[in-house]
């Protein structure tokens, strides 16, 4: 049942398949009665990078939390509407932990767990039952390499992950997400606390990954969405204002004037 290598059923997105990884129908999210997001409809297709832009407080993070069911452990957060992940409504998943293990998440502020670099990356495989050191070694090295961190940490895999620099920790988080062997990778403003050089390195990593994994990229940098995303959605004050091909949006083909205003920096 457990496969050490990074290859399990349903894992790899063959690009161009066109299957919808995430389908959102009429999604509304509220916290203790206060609306954070309302009436969102969208689909994320297999193999694409789906960008989400919008100013702070537009409901982007809540959107991500609803997909991997983080509302489950929060008494305040309430989610209404349909979210289908891999074709099954997230509320109908019999094992919510299995759902989450298929979704990698990278947080705005890097969270290096207080474990060694090695254990950080080996945690997810261990959770699903990989025990053999040799198998773990392969996964750890491979994921760190894909996250462009291996060369920097290969000599200190035993040191504490939380002691790495901010940029390194963020790549460690990406490596950790990859070790889950996810179908979907969600990045939430990953560059907010890292330097520009690291940001560019991570962007290169994402360009490589797009061939294998579907990515939702929430970003505060509109140009980052332009550089990376195939399609982009614009969220504003809890509303999904517009969804379109990224290039079209950035060349002015918008249905809503607010989108253009935001992209061109007139507010936000």
């Amino acid at each position: 049942m457990v496969e050490p290598a990074v290859n399990t059923p349903g894992a790899q997105a063959a690009s161009g398949n066109g299957r919808n990884v995430v389908e959102i129908k009429n999604l509304s999210i509220s916290y203790s009665g206060q609306t954070a997001l309302e009436g969102v409809n969208l689909t994320v297709r297999e193999g694409e990078i789906f960008g989400i832009i919008g100013p702070a407080g537009s409901g982007k993070t809540s959107f991500l939390k609803a997909i991997n069911r983080m509302d489950l452990f929060s008494t305040a957060m309430e989610v209404k509407g349909g979210i289908r992940f891999l074709g099954r409504d997230v509320k109908d998943w019999r094992n919510v932990y299995a759902l989450r293990s298929r979704v990698g998440v990278v947080f705005p502020l890097p969270v290096g767990l207080p474990l060694s670099v090695y254990d950080n990356v080996a945690l997810a495989p261990r959770l699903r039952g990989v025990k053999k050191k040799a198998d773990l070694d392969i996964i750890v090295e491979r994921c760190l390499q894909r996250a462009a961190l291996w060369d920097e940490v290969k000599d200190r895999l035993d040191s504490l992950g939380s002691l790495l620099s901010g940029g390194q920790q963020q790549r460690l988080t990406i490596a950790r997400s990859l070790s889950q062997d996810p179908d979907l990778l969600m990045l939430d403003e990953f560059s907010i606390a890292v330097d520009p050089v690291t940001t560019m390195r991570i962007e290169d990593v994402l360009k490589e990954l797009r061939k294998e994994i579907t990515i939702i990229l929430v970003t505060n940098l509109v140009q980052q969405a332009r550089r990376l995303a195939d399609r982009t959605a614009f969220f504003l004050n809890g509303e999904c204002v517009e969804i379109g091909e990224t290039e079209a949006l950035f060349t002015g083909t918008v249905k809503d004037q607010r989108t253009l205003d935001y992209i061109e920096g007139r507010f936000g």
């Binding site: 932990y97 293990s101 990698g104 947080f107 969270v111 767990l113």
Partner: peptide, 25 residues
């Protein structure tokens, strides 16, 4: 709390999170 959320988001059950991250710390 960020440690718990990071661990949950990786698919750890509550108990796995408690045992591997919360209690050791």
């Amino acid at each position: 709390q960020a440690f718990r959320e990071a661990c949950w988001s990786m698919g750890a059950t509550r108990w796995q999170t408690i045992r591997r991250i919360v209690i050791p710390n």
